[in-house]
């Protein structure tokens, strides 16, 4: 098609070229300032004294212990949430019961609770001052200022992630396929593994991915329950805060860069999933 004979043709459902250029300009400039600049500054600050200084700062004992702890917490919290998400989605979509909407509201509740308030709640329930916390400590099971508390806080803030992604997908798929499998004599577990799971696997992966990103980076709730004991209960985000407050800028930003790199990997995987399995994930966006 040649444009030379039709210099300013545009359809009635398009904006004027000037307006369009202005809108694109605002969008690009806004994201450049709000998103790309902070991203760039993390790596720039980490590499201010060269690669060697950055890598070295990640090699000391406290840094390594923080990385281990974050990986451990994530490795416990994410599968726990995935199991909860599957169970909750199964319960909500395969059965009809009273109070379903209320249950969904309760599952979404952690989204509207400040992470700091979440941490506070856990301290009040399991801390040394409470009856339950005192009993647990007397029996050698401290929760607050120890790893179980960090795990609980992390599960709290990521609680709805997997369930929220699975429920709309399982509603759209209905119950007919499972009913057919059961009619043909398959056991409940076999039906789940061979019929349900293949149908929801991409949505499950998607939810797990979002959950992982948040679990690795959770700060507010963990800051309250961890006690910030160096080498013991200091996760990567907590360590970033401690290093930053001690004016160890390169070390703080190096650890931040490591977490950022993990976040970027998550984003890439997520984008890939959205491109490859748009059909299954479309159900999530429709609801």
């Amino acid at each position: 098609m040649s444009d030379t004979t039709l210099p300013t043709f545009r359809t009635a459902t398009e904006e004027a070229p000037l307006l369009r250029a202005a809108l694109i300009g605002i969008a690009v400039a806004g994201l450049a300032v709000l998103v790309f600049a902070p991203l760039a500054v993390v790596f720039a600050e980490a590499l201010k004294d060269g690669w060697l200084a950055a890598v070295e700062s990640l090699g000391n004992r406290d840094a390594r212990s923080a990385i281990h702890l974050t990986l451990l917490i994530t490795a416990i919290a994410v599968p726990a949430n995935a199991a909860f998400g599957i169970a909750a989605a199964w319960f909500i979509t395969k059965f009809d019961f009273r109070g379903k909407a209320f249950l969904i509201t309760l599952i979404d509740l952690p989204f509207s609770v400040s992470p700091v308030v979440a941490g506070l709640c856990i301290v009040l329930l399991f801390g040394a001052n409470s009856a339950l916390g005192g009993w647990l400590i007397a029996h050698g099971w401290p929760i607050v200022f120890a790893i179980p508390g960090i795990v609980l806080a992390t599960i709290f803030v990521t609680f709805p992630f997997v369930a929220r992604e699975l429920i709309p997908v399982m509603i759209e798929q209905g119950r007919a396929e499972e009913e057919a499998a059961l009619t043909l004599g398959a056991s409940g577990w076999r039906t789940f593994w061979t019929v349900t799971l293949p149908n929801i696997r991409w949505a499950l992966l998607y939810g797990t991915l979002l959950c992982t990103a948040r679990a690795m980076g959770e700060f507010g709730a963990v800051a309250v329950v961890s006690g910030k004991i160096r080498g013991q209960t200091a996760t990567m985000p907590i360590t970033i805060e401690m290093l930053y407050n001690e004016y160890l800028s390169v070390a703080a930003f190096s650890m931040a860069a490591l977490l950022t790199a993990l976040a970027l990997v998550t984003l890439c995987l997520k984008t890939l999933l959205e491109l490859r399995h748009a059909d299954q994930l479309a159900a999530i966006r429709r609801h």
Partner: peptide, 27 residues
Amino acid sequence: GKRLLDAAVDLPFALPTAVAGIALTAL
């Protein structure tokens, strides 16, 4: 660059808040 822009919208979800905090402060 539209696809890159689209993916970048989700960065605040993925980036840990402490990282965002020190990055914005540095800026």
